[in-house]
């Protein structure tokens, strides 16, 4: 890696974003980085002719101020599981990690990361939305780690903890922080809050090594999730995407056994299951760039704009896993993207 600049060797800052506290935290953290002023984050993030994967070799940080919209209705790809009032927001664009199956490489032309530093605008938008919704039965759910892994950035820009503090001031708001990080230690001192759902994506070691090589290894993630469960946080375990290959069921059986040997299943809020799937346009865009992950050369089916494993194989595999999981948890706690 010596041929490449370290990640965040350069920080591009929108003129209007410089004075925000989050910008100052980032600039202090990377005091040796070269700071380059930009008029608008899109001047750098949306440039034509970028190569996502090359840029991932040396990611740059872009500090910017987001304008509306600050909140989006959840896409079909997010597991809503019948819950109403589900939204997501984008405090960060792109991820510190680079999983082979990640849709971000098809969504963004850039491998660099944008951090929107006007966090209070995001929070105000949620308050406004909450005021317009009927939240007597169900809370408003916001996924704040949808286009990123916000927790993975916590030791760089502590946004997750600031969001947790915000949730504590709102009665009818639940946030989901989905992560593959091993950084629970950074929020360990906070008092757990029932309206903060920490979701860890866990995969068997073989899968993590092959397709999630830039994320922390399985054991570190498991350790973090276990600590969170034991500290009393609401924890969701995401077994998603399930990757099917020769011998997958044995590997996943052993993996689930390992997971629930460490984590008491009765203390887990729920688990999610889903196979590899991706918006067809993102998939096509990635495929055009000749990706080097074998994942993109398997046989898939396109249905309703989503690329995934054929329905029959998908359902059969997920049902098998559901059965296996039901040895540990009641079926009502197993949420499946079918």
């Amino acid at each position: 890696m010596k041929y490449f600049q370290p990640n965040f060797s350069h920080i591009y800052v929108e003129r209007g974003a410089l004075d925000y506290p989050l910008s100052q935290i980032a600039l202090k953290k990377f005091s040796k980085s070269k700071v380059i002023e930009v008029d608008h984050y899109k001047d750098i993030f949306n440039r034509t002719g970028q190569d996502f994967q090359v840029q991932k070799k040396s990611m740059k940080l872009i500090l910017a101020k987001k304008t509306e919209p600050f909140l989006y209705p959840a896409s079909e790809m997010v597991q809503e599981f019948g819950t109403p009032n589900v939204y997501y927001n984008t405090p960060i664009l792109n991820c510190l990690y680079n999983c082979d199956y990640c849709f971000l490489q098809g969504m963004y032309s850039s491998g660099n990361m944008v951090v929107f530093v006007n966090e209070s605008d995001f929070m105000d938008a949620i308050k406004i939305k909450m005021a317009s919704l009927n939240l007597t039965l169900d809370p408003m759910v916001v996924s704040i780690s949808y286009n990123t892994d916000i927790m993975a950035m916590e030791n760089i820009i502590p946004m997750a903890s600031r969001w947790i503090d915000f949730v504590k001031t709102q009665k009818k708001l639940l946030i989901e922080i989905r992560t593959k990080s091993a950084l629970f230690s950074l929020i360990k001192k906070m008092i757990p809050h029932e309206n903060v759902l920490l979701s860890w994506t866990l995969s068997p070691e073989k899968i993590a090594e092959e397709f999630e090589s830039t994320a922390p290894p399985f054991n570190s993630r498991l350790k973090s999730a276990k600590e969170a469960v034991e500290a009393g946080w609401a924890v969701r375990l995401c077994f998603d995407p399930i990757i099917l290959f020769d011998g997958w069921f044995e590997i996943y059986s052993q993996f689930l056994h390992e997971v629930f040997r460490e984590i008491n299943p009765s203390k887990v809020r729920d688990v999610t299951l889903g196979v590899f799937r991706m918006n067809k346009d993102f998939y096509k865009r990635i495929k055009k760039r000749e990706p080097t992950s074998t994942l993109f050369y398997d046989n898939y089916e396109i249905k309703d704009g989503v690329v995934s494993i054929g329905k029959k194989e998908r359902t059969e595999s997920l049902e098998k896993l559901e059965e296996l999981l039901s040895e540990y948890l009641p079926k009502s706690k197993i949420l499946i993207w079918k």
Partner: peptide
């Protein structure tokens, strides 16, 4: 060079800076 401005059009261009060159930088 890490930033190029065209005086005529006022457009800015940003070359990628991936390689660890150890060179000083300028716009």
């Amino acid at each position: 060079i890490n930033k190029i401005k065209d005086e005529n059009s006022n457009e800015n261009y940003f070359p990628d800076l991936i390689v660890n060159s150890n060179l000083l930088e300028h716009s």
